[in-house]
Write a protein that binds this DNA or RNA. Structure first.
Length: 470
RNA sequence: GGUCCCAUCGUCUAGAGGCCUAGGACGUAGCCCUCUCAAGGCUAAAACACGGGUUCGAAUCCCGUUGGGACCGCCA
């Protein structure tokens, strides 16, 4: 029987949860859920100068928004220093690691020199065989890498990747301030947490042979590795602040639905035939590392927006009503504590669903249903609210005033009567009314808009428009 | 500079030697629907980086070239 899958997402809290991290987390989560395994969240905060509590909270918030629940953790590496120390001591005792007395400044200088001369900037191993401590110096601990032979990484995505051990550096595993470093703690933790599959960005592929030697030195089994291709910006370089919004939270704030976002990032590097839209359950059912591609993907905001619009169309009006609330508040369309009739709101949202690509847009369109403070687009006003349309507006107002049953169907009948009376096209009447009522030239069908706005407000807005013309 | 990874429409991708006249999706353009805008439907333009092999046959396998990317820290 196959061993139970245990995977982890291990972000370092030195920034917000970004697109690439989110996808790594998602693939780990999907792999765990597909295989009925365990998904672990581990915070890699060994770099105390750059890690913050705020970023930890932000990452957790991002994970929650994405709906990626973890079964264990969040573990924090800063809570586990004694574990790393005991493993480091073991390596030291066994002669698999040694003290290095070179100062960071010296090392940096040597590195620059090597780079300038076109040599590989590798540690020269000068402390490797030291018999005595160097007085007056604080030591770091280095791991003794094998200097010959080859190391093969058998990657689930990239295949067999061969590294020449002579390239490998004696890396520092414990800094001179006694804190452990990444390449060491990641191995210790993955061993300690019994991780079976390491799924991470392919920027770590070059670290893998080094880590493999640490596993061996410690006498542990090597997990399976799967290195995911990177997500690049439109300029084909690694996604960064320069490319604008890259944090998961910013997509939440722009009004993307969590499911749409997940659906978008899963398709970056993974496909299931020609299918574009997946439910969570389908994702869990279909996900496989075998279907993950090898090449980097470029982030395409247009497609994300399209997916979002599809998810909005397929959401119920009730659900959208809940989701749009924070946006209504933030955009000043409702006030704190203001209560809306949910049934009425849903009716309005139904007309707007297929015209809103994000929740911000939906909220914005909802303005002319909810608020009196609509604001009329000056260009629309000039074109449609003028002497030519005045008689239509007056007639519409009068006809609607006489309507008792203020529903779309009846409103339409009233409009059609006027179309005949004036011997004109519906558009010539509808468009000025649209602008008078919504302030915009683009809205849902005019009859349903009028019904939702309601008779009283409609008459009021028409009167106001008539007054500004006349 | 060294090491490693990658290469199908502008973008995400399907493609496991013959199903390929290379499929789908976003975006773009046109048409239909239509009170506007969407949504929806239909149509179009758009790709196997290049060069050598292997093979009866290559987008698919091998080699090279070119191009892109990542990594080479007492960062992760």
């Amino acid at each position: 029987m196959a061993e139970k899958v245990r995977v982890r997402f291990a972000p370092s809290p030195t920034g917000l949860l970004h697109l690439g991290g989110a996808r790594t987390a998602l693939f780990n989560w999907l792999y765990a859920r597909h295989n009925k395994g365990t998904f672990i969240l581990r915070i890699e905060d060994t770099d105390r100068t750059r890690s913050t509590e705020e970023y930890i909270d932000a990452i957790i918030e991002g994970m929650r928004w994405l709906g990626l629940d973890w079964d264990e953790g969040p573990y924090r590496q800063t809570d586990r220093f004694s574990i790393y120390k005991s493993y480091a001591d073991k390596l030291l005792r066994e002669g698999k690691a040694y003290y290095c007395y070179c100062s960071p400044e010296e090392l940096e200088k040597r590195r620059q020199e090597a780079l300038a001369q076109g040599r590989p900037p590798k540690y020269d191993g000068r402390c490797r065989n030291l018999k005595e401590p160097v007085p007056g110096r604080v030591a770091a601990v280095r791991f003794k890498m094998p200097q010959e032979g080859e190391t093969v990484v058998d990657d689930l995505i990239k295949g067999k990747v061969v590294f020449d051990n002579a390239q490998l550096d004696d890396l520092i595993i414990i800094r001179s301030d006694r804190t452990p470093t990444y390449n060491f703690v990641v191995v210790v933790d993955d061993v300690d947490m019994e991780i079976t599959h390491v799924i991470r960005g392919d920027d770590h592929l070059n670290n893998t042979p080094k880590q493999i030697h640490i596993y061996r030195a410690l006498g542990y089994r090597i997990p399976a590795f799967a290195h995911l291709p990177m997500i690049l910006g439109p300029d084909k370089t690694r996604l960064s602040k320069r490319h604008g919004a890259t944090s998961v939270t910013s997509y939440k704030e722009m009004g993307y639905l969590s499911d749409a976002f997940v659906n978008y990032i899963v398709r970056l590097g993974w496909a299931h035939g020609d299918q574009e839209i997946f439910t969570r359950d389908e994702l869990i059912e279909y996900f496989s590392l075998e279907d993950v591609g090898k090449s980097a993907a470029i982030f395409n905001p247009e497609k994300l927006l399209w997916l979002n619009s599809q998810y909005i169309i397929n959401s119920t009006a009730e659900r959208l009503g809940e989701l749009v609330m924070p946006f209504l508040l933030k955009q000043g369309i409702i006030k704190e504590g203001q209560i809306l009739d949910r049934e009425w709101l849903s009716k309005g949202i139904k007309t707007l669903k297929e015209r809103s690509r994000a929740l911000v847009e939906l909220a914005n369109s909802l303005r002319y249903y909810i608020s009196e403070d609509i604001g009329i687009d000056p260009k629309a006003k000039e074109k449609f609210l003028n002497k030519k349309s005045l008689p239509y507006l007056i007639d519409v107002k009068e006809a609607l005033k006489r309507l008792d049953n203020f529903v779309a169907q009846e409103i339409e009948k009233a409009f059609m009567t006027l179309v005949e009376k004036h011997n004109t096209k519906l558009g010539n009447i509808a468009q000025p009314v649209r602008v008078a009522i919504t302030g915009k030239t683009e809205t849902p069908g005019i009859f349903e808009v009028l019904e939702i706005v309601g008779k009283e407000k409609v008459i009021k807005r028409l009167e106001k428009a008539i007054k500004t013309i006349g």
